[in-house]
Simulated scan of single mutants.
Amino acid sequence: LLVERFQRVLEAVINDPLCLVGSIDVLTDDERRKVLEQWNDGGAVEAERLPLLPDMVSARAGQAPDKTAVVYGDVSLTYGQLEEASNQLARLLISQGVGPETIVGLAVPRSPEMVISMLAVLKAGGAYLPIDTSYPPDRIAFMLTDAQPLLLLTTTEVVDLLGDTNTTTLVLDDAALHDRLTGHSTTAITDHDRHTPLHPHNAAYIIYTSGSTGTPKGV
């Protein structure tokens, strides 16, 4: 195919030595038909039919519950464990009002709990806002004030680094919260459980720019 394409370029130059290189057509009739018609027929998959990440993880957990999903140091989680833990946390978040277009702050150190938290927020339908606790206190305060998350998930390891915040905070490794989580079902989350149906166009997460050229912006 590459040789044929090169041959067409040479033939074009021979037939018209004054032609512009950018004007040389390197596509075959079949390739042009694919690009202009077959691949551009307006029949794109509707957004509503696209698979959702929470559903994809749940499907994988159903297919291979004992396969390793998360590894951190000497700690690992299977897909089954990840599914159950994230479902319980998602149900707790839903009970606290989290749903599509709702923001949840995540001030959770890199760990299996961070993955569980991210997935739980998505399962509840919300969008997660990652917060690096190594940021200066002023930046953390700005992000929380600007994004206005409904809840803030964190751990005892870093909760004191967040400073004063008016956001309702859930400490994941707190014994009382653990008791609340165990009271929730581990079954998969569906739109029946959420406050409103979840769609691919709903926000999934918010990332803030560095702010090196001015005020950080949430994207």
Rank of each mutant, 00 (worst) to 15 (best):
D164R: 13
V35I: 07
V71K: 00
R8T: 04
L53K: 05
I189Y: 02
E4T: 06
I24N: 02
V3H: 15
Q63E: 13
E84K: 10
S95D: 09
S134G: 08
D193G: 03
Q81E: 14
L106M: 08
D16H: 12
R110P: 03
I94L: 12
G99T: 11
S86L: 12
G125V: 02
V98M: 04
G218W: 13
V104T: 07
A204Y: 13
G22L: 04
P51Q: 14
A175C: 06
A47Q: 11
R33T: 14
G73Q: 04
V9W: 12
D160I: 02
G80A: 03
I14S: 11
Y128E: 02
P216I: 12
I94M: 14
G22M: 07
G214T: 09
A147C: 05
Q7K: 13
W39V: 11
V3G: 11
L20W: 09
P100V: 06
D179T: 14
D193F: 00
I14C: 06
P112V: 05
H201Q: 13
L162R: 04
A188Y: 04
S117P: 01
F142R: 02
L20K: 09
T154Y: 03
D138I: 13
S185Q: 06
V159N: 08
V104A: 02
D174K: 00
E84A: 11
A12F: 10
G42R: 08
P197I: 05
Q96I: 04
A90F: 05
R60C: 11
H201Y: 06
Y128I: 00
T78I: 01
T165W: 00
L18V: 09
I207S: 10
R91D: 02
T190Q: 03
N40A: 12
L106W: 09
T133I: 09
D138G: 11
G62V: 08
L52A: 09
S210T: 10
V121M: 02
L10H: 10
T68W: 03
G125W: 01
I131V: 14
A47I: 09
D16V: 12
E37T: 08
D25R: 14
E46S: 13
P197N: 04
T145H: 10
G43Q: 11
D173E: 08
L92M: 07
K123H: 09
T165C: 06
E113D: 08
V35W: 07
T28E: 03
A203M: 15
